[in-house]
Design a protein around this nucleic acid. Structure first.
Length: 569
RNA sequence: CGGGGUGUAGUUCAUCGGUAGAACGCUCGCUUUGGGAGCGAGAAGUAGCAAGUCCAAUUCUUGUCACCCCGACCA
């Protein structure tokens, strides 16, 4: 490619509001232009990198035995109703109508489509395991797109879906995908951490994100120093420390409590530690059920964990009116006797408690009435839980289950792998295969995604210097950036042209800066900005040889064309 | 979705109650020529859109749309 003909010039200005290096550099170097928020044009340089990423991912997916296909972009809305995802993911789903008023979802993920496809076939256990993947544009009506290519409303994703006969088979596939992803990111020179995460509206029980550590990222996660445990804030587990469990249980009493409604107000009034207080968080789920989260006072409730234990898609905070209707009072909620009050008032209530409640004795909390508190409250004796488990938010400094301190990190999620189990195959009719006895069994599923544009932006976030991008060779838009200087000299011009042609004959991708009117300094600056791995200069100064410099090094070497070709092979 | 902000030339921005200006970029010319050259000339804007106030609105007011930032949300 001749630079003089390349569509997409370098530019010195950066877009208004661009804060991320990747956004600025990709714009300045002529890889991308914005259309509207979260939707970008990929210019010729940009699409070259994009295609290389796709090629690497495809190679590794094929190697892992997955098969490529493509689904329609418009998904029939009925399919999403079948899995009850129209409400769960409705806030970011885009729905359109055709001329017959048929409703379609603009695909943002394709579990339903793949299940629908596979049930059109009468598969048997002999056809399994099966892993199908595609590269397709995904639509997400994100509340807030940001950061250039890091959070888009429209982007290419590689999404794969696996179908297995048993959980054991699935686990092999899951492991295989984990290894495949590791190989893919290795080939991109990206160091990824595999972090336990929450499944969100995708469903299923567990999943892992591939995260590249970066301050530009939006994913917060916790990990131990030795790197053996890393988990997203939403799911991170930690050890509860015992407080006063050896204390004698005292008699529970109700006292007058003229105080404000915060935890601190309780601490101040009673002169007791925060951890001895019981925190009560009243939420409402998508079915209108009241959910009470109960936890030791010095911990915070993790609403994602709470939603899981409640088996709810979404939770929101209850209003003061809702709390009063149930028979309690904001700021004075207590697990003691609340179930009876709810029942008396005809409100459905689920009480979910954190295991940390067992680390304290003689706790204090509200008494479900304004300005009344209960002292010396003890679990089992004074109140019981409908569900007991882990609803606590992990924080930096807490102890991991291995006893190591958790540290907080930030990163960009470039890929993820999900266990889906029977989540979809049980909700969708006839999502079954025939087993050895001819009996219909539901598929055990998983899904696996990589955002291509986000990965591209991540590469730029990681590989850059103050002059521009430094592309890893595997995905660089070209391998060689050939700079012709002193091109008004006919001999040099023809030698440069010949070099350009010979490199192409050798199958080496080369961008030839053939501009006559542009000075050397500008060409060097452009080459640094664009970030192609090898810069090759032909000029008066280079003489018969070529001046070769790697983008990531400051050393230059003079060599002949055959030597260069040999080096690049 | 809540809070804040910004919409003026291709881009980044300035200006102003009397219908606009710079830099970069672009075109042409001369000089220059190894780290974003200099000089000169030129093309380029219905000031997001709509309504209102005013003799007069790009400027003030209201609405609307778009975009940006913080938060909520979010594979």
């Amino acid at each position: 490619m001749k630079y003089s003909k390349l569509f997409g010039k370098t530019i010195k200005d950066t877009p208004t509001g661009a804060t991320l290096v990747s956004h600025k550099l990709l714009y300045q170097a002529g890889f991308i232009r914005e259309s509207t928020a979260g939707r970008y044009y990929l210019l010729p340089l940009g699409i070259r990198v994009h295609r290389k990423l796709e090629a690497i991912i495809k190679e590794e997916m094929d190697k892992a035995g997955a098969q490529q296909l493509i689904t329609p972009v418009l998904h029939p809305l009925e399919l999403w109703k079948e899995t009850n995802r129209t409400t769960a993911a409705g806030f970011e789903l885009m729905v359109i109508k055709d001329r017959n008023q048929g409703q379609f979802v603009l695909g943002g993920t394709a579990e339903e489509m793949l299940v629908d496809l596979i049930r059109k076939f009468q598969l048997s256990y002999k056809d399994l395991p099966l892993n199908l993947y595609q590269f397709s544009t995904k639509f997400r009506d994100e509340a807030r797109a940001r950061g250039g290519l890091l959070r888009l409303r429209e982007f290419m994703m590689k999404d794969a879906y696996s179908f297995d006969a048993t959980e054991a088979d699935f686990k092999k596939e899951y492991k295989s995908m984990e290894q495949t992803y590791s190989r893919i990111f290795d080939r991109l020179d990206l160091k990824t951490l595999i972090v336990e995460s929450d499944n969100g509206y995708i469903g299923g029980e567990y999943c892992h994100e591939f995260i590249v550590e970066s301050d530009a990222g939006e994913s917060k996660f916790l990990m131990t120093d030795d790197g053996k445990y890393s988990a997203h804030e939403d799911v991170a587990k930690f050890m509860r420390d015992n407080k006063n469990i050896d204390e004698e249980e005292k008699e529970m009493i109700s006292v007058e409590a003229i105080r404000g409604t915060t935890m601190e107000d309780g601490v101040k009034l009673h002169g007791l530690p925060m951890w001895q207080q019981i925190k009560d968080l009243m939420m409402v789920d998508d079915q209108g059920r009241m959910i009470l989260g109960v936890i030791r006072g010095d911990y915070d409730v993790n609403e994602v964990k709470l939603a899981h234990l409640a088996k709810a898609y979404t939770l929101r905070h209850a209003t003061a009116e809702e709390i009063q209707k149930l028979g309690s009072e904001p700021g004075f909620i207590s697990p003691v006797g609340i179930k009876q009050k709810a029942k008396a008032n005809g409100v459905e209530l689920l009480v979910i408690g954190d295991s940390s409640l067992r680390t304290i004795k003689n706790a204090y909390t509200g008494d479900n009435a304004k300005h009344k508190d209960l002292m010396n409250v003890n679990i089992d004796r004074d109140y019981s839980l409908d569900v007991e488990g882990d609803i606590a938010l992990a924080k930096a400094g807490y102890s991991s289950l291995d006893g190591l301190a958790l540290i907080e990190k930030k990163g960009i999620e470039v890929g993820n792998i999900f266990q889906l189990g029977y989540h979809y195959s049980s909700r969708m009719k006839d999502a079954t295969f025939a087993d050895e006895k001819g009996e219909k069994k539901p598929y055990y599923m998983g899904c696996y995604g990589i955002g291509i544009a986000r990965t591209l932006a991540t590469l730029v976030e990681i590989f850059n210097d103050d002059k521009g991008i430094i592309w890893p060779e595997a995905v660089a838009p070209f391998k060689v950036h050939l700079l012709g200087l002193d091109l008004e000299d006919k001999a040099i011009a023809s030698s440069a042209q010949k070099t350009y042609e010979l490199l192409q004959v050798e199958g080496i991708e080369v961008l030839f800066d053939d501009r006559e009117e542009v000075r050397a300094g500008a060409k060097f600056a452009d080459a640094d900005l664009i970030g192609i791995p090898y810069r090759v200069v032909i000029s008066k100064r280079s003489g018969e040889k070529l001046e070769v410099k790697r983008r990531d090094s400051s050393d230059t070497a003079f060599m002949t064309l055959p030597e260069l070709i040999n080096k690049l092979r």
